[in-house]
């Protein structure tokens, strides 16, 4: 994706976004409402024409070869649960879309059965989606987006209306499919836990601009220069230990939480050994020293909040 720009009237929904998603990875695309996530996906799916820039998917240019692009991608739109033909059964919905994707007749039936089985819809396959709950409809949408075994799958809020068990199952499904580089997933979501669990890399978009891209771990490191550690001691005086840590002059703050001492510091790699040494020399018995890793939510707040 190079310099992608998409405008509606005078509103610039996507603003010069350049992004490289690697084959076989699960890429998380994060941002607040109206940040430009869904518009980016729609341009990638050849549903919208960019005003500027281009996207190449598996060697096919979305502007020059839209039919080829559509044949190798799967799309779960943002309001996926409400996008079914209520006049057809769930099975017929999948069969219809499968045929439009040119899925060979001899494999289509098996593919539909496989997806319905995995997503636990087999016993409702002859019912109209109109009789489904929102969660069931969303599952059917996921099945539809995967019906032709696409090389690249765009999922816009895939688990937003699913219960925790089914969300986990869908995440496992995505993880399995992405394993070994079989499929590439481009995931738009608000659920940061989902990104943590699934995504190899994430991109933050705000007001149409791509703000940050990186591995979740790298981003945490980047935005958390002051790191938090907790230390657990055995048969030791927590109060005294806290005073020892403070007296080293290496930490920014120290506090006691339950049976642990929590402290914040910069350049942990060089300072932590000195703190540990000071405690041991004072006769303290250390069981564990562990970093408190900030979750992606905190990174998100920091990145998007700053924009």
């Amino acid at each position: 994706m190079v310099d992608l720009t998409k405008e509606f009237a005078k509103i610039r929904a996507v603003d010069n976004v350049s992004l490289d998603v690697r084959r076989g990875e699960v890429f998380g695309f994060l941002g607040p409402n109206a940040a430009g996530k869904s518009t980016t996906v729609k341009v990638a799916a050849t549903l919208l024409m960019p005003n500027k820039g281009s996207i190449v998917i598996e060697g096919y240019d979305v502007l020059e070869q839209p039919v080829e692009v559509r044949s190798i991608i799967g799309l779960l739109p943002e309001d996926g649960a409400s996008t079914h033909y209520d006049r057809l059964s769930a099975y017929k919905n999948l069969e219809y879309i499968g045929r439009l994707y040119d899925v060979p007749e001899e494999t289509l039936e098996n593919r539909i059965d496989e997806l319905l089985e995995f997503l636990e819809l087999s016993d409702r396959k002859d019912d109209s989606p109109a009789t489904y709950s929102t969660g069931l409809k969303q599952k059917l949408s996921i099945a539809r987006s995967m019906i032709h075994n696409p090389q690249v799958v765009f999922l816009d809020e895939p688990t937003s209306s699913l219960d925790p068990i089914m969300s986990k199952r869908v995440r496992e499904f995505i993880d399995t499919q992405a394993e070994g580089g079989k499929q590439t997933f481009f995931l738009c979501t608000h659920l940061l836990s989902e990104v943590e669990a699934l995504c190899d890399r994430v991109g933050f978009i705000s007001k149409g601009k791509l703000v940050e891209v990186g591995r979740p771990k790298e981003l945490r490191r980047k935005f958390w220069t002051v790191r938090t550690y907790e230390i657990q001691l055995i048969d030791s005086n927590l109060q005294k230990s806290g005073e020892i840590i403070t007296s080293t002059g290496l930490v920014k703050s120290v506090k006691i939480e339950g049976n642990r001492i929590v402290f914040e510091l910069e350049n942990a790699e060089t300072k932590n050994p000195q703190i540990v040494r000071a405690l041991i020399e004072s006769g303290m018995n250390i069981i564990e020293l562990r970093e408190r890793v900030p979750d992606l939510d905190a990174v998100y707040q920091k990145v998007i909040g700053g924009n």
Partner: peptide, 14 residues
């Protein structure tokens, strides 16, 4: 009206 347009347009049909 029934929001079925996007999945249809996402298929390889010209």
């Amino acid at each position: 009206e029934r929001h079925t347009l996007v999945p249809l347009l996402a298929t390889p049909l010209t």
